[in-house]
Write a protein that binds this DNA or RNA. Sequence first.
RNA 1: GGCGCCGUCGCCAAGUGGUAAGGCAGAGGUCUGCAAAACCUCCAUCUCCGGUUCAAAUCCGGACGGCGCCUCCA
Length: 471
Amino acid sequence: MLRLYNTLTHKEEPFAPLHGDVVRMYGCGPTVYARAHIGNFRTYVCLDVLRRTLKYVCGHQVRQAVNYTDVDDKTIKGALESGTSLREYTDTWIHAFREDSARLGIEAPEETPRATDDENMRAMGDMILTLEAKGHAYRRDGSIYFKISTLPQYGQLARLDRDGMKDGAAVDVDEYSKDDPRDFVLWKASKPGEPSWDVGTGAGRPGWHLECSAMALRLLGGPPIDIHAGGVDLVFPHHENEIAQSEGATGTTFARCWFHIEHLFVESEKMSKSLGNVYTIAEIVARGHRPSALRYLLLSSHYRKQLNFTWTGMDQAEEAIRRIVDFRSRLDTVTDSAAHGRVPPQVADARQAFKTALEHDLNTAGALAAVFDLVRDVNAAIDAHEVSAAEAREAADAIDHFDRVLGVVSLRQAEDAEPPVPVEEIERLIGERRAARERRDFAAADRIRKELVERGILLEDNAGGTRWKKK
RNA sequence: GGCGCCGUCGCCAAGUGGUAAGGCAGAGGUCUGCAAAACCUCCAUCUCCGGUUCAAAUCCGGACGGCGCCUCCA
């Protein structure tokens, strides 16, 4: 059974969906005002692995929502500066995000709501009115605030207490007049020139936290929903405030399990624009790396540990994937008909180890070890001519199964499907080279191989003939 | 000031009470026309100091080092 670390309880707990076999999960998505960076994508790749584990390892169905925050200070400013409407402006970045997500092999969630969609705005308005009716909210100068003192459990997720929040920590000094500095805004009064909505709230726009509460409950049903996720930085105040709003409005638990992904660092430093180390997928590619390598790198350490992105790490990831991909294609070349019985138990062990690792709070590094164990074992068996085609098929099925969760082999194969040299030309040259080798003209043969290497194609001579692959 | 995390081979990284997975890199070897790939062999006692235990990388205490949150942020 899957066990997940729950931020709410600070413990690893067995996880099962509340209703039947459907896991209802919500992830806080990007604010769409710029191209997302690799740190953002660590979160989304880890969510993807969680999603895939739930589906393909645990056998659950998944109903996942990941939102686009398409109205806030940054998006409004960006739209203004680019001279386009908020909708057009955010459309651009949503498109970019989908493009990058696809390059990283992230499965599309069932729901990708936008805050400014009518039905979501209405849901937010309804939630505010409910909070007001229950005495959790108050209006001041056209804005509406959540009154923290009305909710005794406030602070449970982040484990913050009032007394500790003093010296050294910045105290929220707001330009608005709130009853308590910690009260947060549910609805911001509109300013001249800014887009605004009125959903029983007066003209304005939603506060930072409101959209997630409203959309999660609208799209996933409940409460409680099964899993709520995001980057660690969202624990406070975002998620704490989401809990306050949702539980204030519904009177019951908002989310059963809180799943948080640690931050990515770059060359041991926090990413920041001033350091110039905020990389996007496009920049990774421009440096000659495949997105699959980034995905692998993100999977190679545990999601609750800080991960240090380095270019050496990317090089190592490229090599590691290559080993698995080479193995996977080698399996297709096995033609022996006699079974030897050596491989099936190896496959069974690997499948078991893979599952056990993922079930243990998504231990992807451990799962990868299981994959490599199988690679080594079966490679050795093939070298010893002790594998039948059917047994190779079993191993291939296992690798394909593993990759439904890892999503890294298929990604690499897709990336390498378009070689820099036309396939017919590669094959023609391989033919010429074979002829040269047959007449023992190794100089000519080596010349062809060298030429292809320079054009990005590697040749490997095996018992069955010559194989090519992208460098 | 409060809360919390981390320190395992050159690099990355599992393991969290029973005697150190895996990947990358490296050395030697097998195979090969040569390469490549693959395989085999070699390559750490877990930051340090105490303690608990038959047994600790794993638990407790302390030291040193690194980091996060308490403020917009994945």
